[in-house]
Design a binder for these strands. Structure first.
Length: 681
DNA sequence: TACATGAGGCTTTTT
DNA sequence: GCCTCATGTA
């Protein structure tokens, strides 16, 4: 938020800042200074004498919270100490401190989606279902997704299965059994996935005595991006504020883009009804963008089926350059065009950081990344595959997880299977031996690692023996290490040869692991590191290292981001690429609308475009490639809309030509005709 | 029991 | 087109 550009608070902002007590809903359009309001209101609470630790600020990414508090600190020095974090962080703290009330024997381990799916596979195996050839099951990932969706929407599994896994509609009872076995498996092993964290916290807060004890820590609760909360998160927020009623939520229903994750933008629309006595403030003056950019946003908004608000009005930047829609030949040409534009800014230190390239799907930026690498233009990537999801990072993390919790089965299985000659069965058998509770009690081994150290010789035979012993020796050295970083080094010393054997031609993996050490170094406590990595991949993204390492120093990199990850951010110049009708809207949303008559997802895709457009301050470029992976592609229906077209300057690159069936080449006029045509393949 | 091979299903966005 | 799972083979 460009708070520095708002000279004074306007009337609505002032009202929102001054209402320090009670329930308050702030409906803030894009760029209307809601962040400024949160900062200012926080400062006023501190001025009034509220201790910073008593203020809780919840958002969806920790970075957003940290930046907000950093800026608030300019107004009040104590703001940096305000208690802030993501919903998942706060929920995890609550769960970890109250694990006994949940019947757990210790604080749980957070697992990511991938391991949650692995746990589904383990549950299926335990039920003996995988041997049954007559009844096939969905893949583990599809099952995990269905279970997650049911949890997030608080919907019956049957509904989700009917919608997402229609082939298995007759098997709902079996799937239900898998879901129960899966939950039991996770509970037994002390694993919590992202959904469990929220559900457990909400359940705990449903116990009045726990709620009052936990909630007593804070006197004021502030929630940003409330349009993206799901039912569990809304419950957590209201429970934490229940004792005092000081709950401020801020959001914009038109920017709700997490419906797939169970976000319920009705929660913000209905907030005033759910919370009696809540005051409502609307922020409508936009301080971020030029009017020319807002004209595009307004034209997109006009296509929305519901809640057509008053158009955004540029309060600080009237006029402005008209956004441009450029049509080029293909992906390659898109990458060239963008790279050309960025290269011009290379001579202008600091300017590069003012640019962002936004995409609907993470993989769409791959050709551009290649081109920027080639030209040594530094960039940072947000969204898509996260660093900790890369196989090589997960391998080393598995070692750290074992040090943290010797009973971490998924981590053991992962590491053991890296050994030559060891597959699923052997790994499972070894782990069963190492973790056998009776044997552990009988022999006095402290845990699986200690037992593995003694048993290594006996369980393994022949060629696998040496491999197992090397692994155990490495874990042993890592365990004795005096710091987390040293443990990491010990594991790495063992792992790097394994890595070069498995991926001999991918040196980037080693670079990743070297880069990752910088993250590891920051932690003195292994448990904190692992919890943060699972809950907050944001801070450990595959980031600048992807850019040219030998680029001139001090250049702030260009941002490449998914639209989702760009939420809440802004840049002087935004380039939106991948705007064909098979990308934005996504084919799933289109299919859902055509088949089930459910326009909900299509509406969300419109909001996605709205979010993308409103990230730009001064200049907006939309680049469309005529040819994609599936041949000729039409421009997004949302951009073809006459209202939107009227706000854009349309340009066609001279290179954008294509051959029709007869081999003739069309240019300009022909291209535009093709854009408007209804043939899409 | 590890690994190769083939068939089939699913393909996005994030904590 | 890619990943996952199941079956066949050494």
């Amino acid at each position: 938020m460009s708070s520095d550009e708002i000279p004074t608070l306007n009337r609505a902002q002032r009202e929102a800042c001054e209402r320090l007590d009670g329930a308050l809903l702030v409906v803030a359009g894009a760029g209307t200074g809601k962040t400024r309001v949160i900062e200012e209101r926080t400062a006023r609470l501190l001025e009034r004498g509220v201790a910073p630790e008593r203020v809780l600020l919840m958002t969806f990414t920790r970075k957003a919270a940290a930046e907000m508090l950093e800026r608030a600190a300019l107004r009040h020095p104590l703001a940096r100490r305000v208690d802030g974090g993501t919903f998942h962080h706060v929920a995890f703290r609550i769960v970890a401190r109250n694990f006994r009330a949940l019947g757990l024997s210790g604080p749980p381990t957070v697992i990511d989606t991938d391991d949650a799916a692995n746990a589904v596979a383990a549950a299926i195996q335990r039920l003996g279902l995988q041997r049954d050839r007559r009844r096939r099951l969905p893949r583990k990932g599809a099952l995990q997704a269905a279970f997650s969706r049911a949890t997030n929407l608080r919907a019956p599994l049957a509904d989700v299965v009917a919608r997402d896994l229609p082939d298995f509609a007759d098997e709902v009872e079996t799937l239900q059994r898998v879901r129960r076995a899966w939950s039991e498996y996770k509970l037994e092993r002390g694993y919590v996935d992202y959904d469990d964290v929220l559900v457990m916290a909400a359940k705990l807060l449903g116990l009045p005595e726990v709620r009052d004890r936990v909630a007593a820590a804070w006197s004021h609760v502030l929630v940003d991006e409330y349009q993206d909360v799901n039912a569990w998160q809304a419950d957590i927020a209201t429970a934490l504020a229940a004792p005092h009623g000081n709950l401020m939520v801020v959001g914009d229903p038109k920017q709700s883009i997490y419906g797939f994750r169970g976000a319920r933008h009705e929660k913000i629309v209905g907030f005033a009804d759910d919370v009696p006595g809540a005051a409502v403030v609307h922020l409508t003056d936009n301080y971020r963008s030029t009017q020319a950019i807002l004209d595009v946003a307004n034209a997109v908004m006009a296509q929305m089926a519901s809640r057509i608000d008053r158009p955004l009005r540029a309060a600080a930047r009237p006029g402005g350059e008209r956004p441009r829609l450029t049509v080029v030949e293909d992906e390659r040409a898109v990458a060239d065009l963008v790279a050309d534009a960025l290269q011009e800014r290379l001579g202008d230190p600091g300017a590069l950081g003012g640019h962002a390239v936004l995409v609907r799907n993470a993989y769409l930026s791959v050709p551009l990344q290649g081109e920027l690498l080639r030209r040594k233009i530094p960039f940072a990537v947000f969204g898509g595959l996260r660093f900790t999801e890369a196989a090589h990072v997960k391998d080393v993390l598995a070692g750290l997880r074992i040090l943290h919790n010797g009973f971490d089965e998924l981590a053991w299985l992962r590491l053991l299977q890296l050994l030559d000659g060891v597959g699923e069965t052997t790994a499972a058998r070894w782990f069963a031996d190492f973790s056998d509770p009776d044997a552990l009690a009988a022999t006095g081994d402290g845990g699986p690692l200690a037992r593995a150290r003694r048993r290594g010789e006996q369980v393994a035979s022949g060629k696998t023996r040496a491999g197992l012993q090397e692994l155990i020796a490495a874990l042993d050295r890592a365990e004795r290490a005096v710091s987390v970083a040293e443990s990491y080094d010990q594991l790495l010393a063992w792992y790097l040869p394994v890595l070069s054997r498995r991926h001999p031609h991918e040196p980037y993996r080693q670079q990743d692991l070297a880069f990752f050490r910088v993250v590891v170094e920051r932690y003195a406590d292994l448990g904190a590191l692992l919890a943060d990595l699972a809950l907050d991949p944001e801070t450990t993204r595959q980031a600048v290292h992807a850019g040219a390492p030998d680029a001139a120093e001090g250049l702030r990199p260009v941002t490449i981001s998914t639209i989702h990850s760009a939420k809440g951010l802004e840049w002087d110049h935004v380039v939106l690429v991948g705007v064909d009708d098979r990308t934005l809207p996504s084919p799933w949303a289109v299919r859902r609308a055509a088949r089930d008559g459910d326009e909900g997802e299509l509406e969300e895709e419109k909001r996605l475009l709205y979010v993308a457009v409103t990230r730009a301050r001064e200049r907006l470029d939309v680049v469309h490639a005529l040819f994609g992976r599936q041949g000729l592609q039409r421009l997004s229906r949302f951009l073809e809309d006459p209202g939107v077209q009227a706000t854009l300057d349309v340009a066609t690159s001279a290179r954008a030509t294509f051959a029709d069936e007869g081999g003739a080449t069309l240019e300009r006029g022909g291209l535009l005709a093709a854009l408007a045509g209804d043939e899409d393949g």
